[in-house]
């Protein structure tokens, strides 16, 4: 597996897109910090970018890489290599290089700016951790989509749709159902609904740091228990791990049954 990972990783490191992605984050980090001169504000802007852009890029990159490396995959399949190693290796190659671009691209400007001397370091690290999780989750989801769809255009379409759904439409439906059923106690429902969307989940995790004062303004006991204690953080993290592991597990499972 590590050999596959190595080759996928090298392949990606050499491809133009990894650099574009890396440079994008680098530029973003510098612009946010040095034009604004305000770490707290930069962290908030970054959060908006991370929960929207990182999933999108993870999805598109994942699908693109999967289809483009079809030949590589077929070549490997005839070699004495375990199937799950091939896909896991490729997946980790993509997710790893994307995560690396994200962490380095944002990390360098922040470190140069003097992050270690600022108390925003925890917010920022949390931001990077969630960004990494989102990359892993959405790359895994997009690999699943690509694996199930031979047709490249179709696969691409589904992947973008998935992103659109989780990033925007889901919250729209969520909001509407909250307003429609506002007479009922909704705090358990809304927490559960959050768990089912990795983007919302990551957002909640960051809100726990950035907006805890607002979240505690709500009266429900379940909310209070969730946001007021470490429980919220632990549960969210656990769910994020689950969101990462499940698509990877399905990827391995499906790949074993697929014909090439």
């Amino acid at each position: 597996m590590f050999k596959i990972l190595k080759y996928s990783f090298y392949d990606l490191i050499r491809s133009r897109w990894s650099y574009v992605y890396f440079l994008f984050y680098l530029a973003l980090g510098f612009v946010l910090l040095f034009l604004n001169n305000d770490v707290s504000k930069a962290v908030i802007t970054l959060m908006n970018i991370i929960i929207v852009l990182v999933p999108l890029i993870g999805t598109i990159f994942g699908v693109m890489y999967f289809y483009n490396s079809k030949e590589f995959t077929e070549l490997l399949l005839a070699q004495p290599v375990k199937r799950s190693s091939i896909f896991l290796g490729q997946y980790l190659g993509v997710a790893g290089s994307l995560t690396l671009s994200l962490v380095l691209g944002l990390g360098i400007p922040f470190v140069l700016y003097g992050l270690f001397r600022s108390d925003a370091i925890f917010d920022f690290s949390l931001l990077l951790v969630t960004g990494a999780f989102l990359t892993m989750i959405f790359t895994a989801l997009s690999f699943n989509i690509a694996l199930s769809n031979e047709n490249k255009i179709k696969g691409f379409g589904y992947a973008v749709l998935l992103w659109l759904f989780l990033a925007v439409i889901y919250d729209g439906l969520f909001l509407m159902s909250l307003i429609v059923f506002e007479e009922y106690p909704l705090d358990t429902f809304s927490l559960v609904a959050t768990m089912f969307n990795p983007i919302d989940l990551s957002r909640t995790l960051i809100l726990l740091k950035l907006d805890i004062s607002a979240l505690l303004g709500y009266t429900g006991a379940v909310f209070k228990q969730f946001f007021g204690t470490n429980q919220g953080f632990l549960v969210s993290m656990l769910m994020l791990v689950l969101w990462t592991v499940l698509p990877i597990w399905r990827l391995i499972h499906k790949s074993k049954q697929k014909d090439f």
């Binding site: 392949d11 070549l75 005839a78």
Partner: peptide, 16 residues
């Protein structure tokens, strides 16, 4: 598969 050499029909290789 360690004991098999295989030549695929369509020679698709990673272009990079």
């Amino acid at each position: 598969r360690e004991g098999i050499n295989y030549l695929p029909q369509i020679a698709n290789f990673p272009g990079n």
